[in-house]
């Protein structure tokens, strides 16, 4: 088991959060949708695992590279 921090690869606003703590997620599943450059930019799970904690709330302004969610993966 390893803990992975999901980072936002864009500066922008958190538009929608699609998962909650404890959720089991598949690879490529959308976790959070950012709003940036007038577009909806999904942040997806790089591998399957379980959400440990969501570090942001909808409406938060985040920086490029900021950790937004922690996942536990095999």
């Amino acid at each position: 088991m390893s803990t992975i921090a999901v980072k936002s690869d864009v500066a922008g606003t958190v538009w929608q959060i699609h998962v909650r703590e404890g959720d089991v997620v598949e690879e490529d599943q959308t976790l959070i949708i950012m709003e940036s450059m007038k577009m909806e930019i999904p942040l997806m799970a790089a591998e399957s695992g379980r959400v440990i904690s969501v570090l942001v709330a909808e409406g938060d302004v985040v920086k490029d590279g900021q950790d937004v969610l922690l996942m536990e993966c095999d």
Binding site: D9, S36, M37
Partner: peptide
């Protein structure tokens, strides 16, 4: 790649 930084 629009998925990263909107492709900018």
């Amino acid at each position: 790649n629009p998925r990263v930084g909107g492709g900018a």
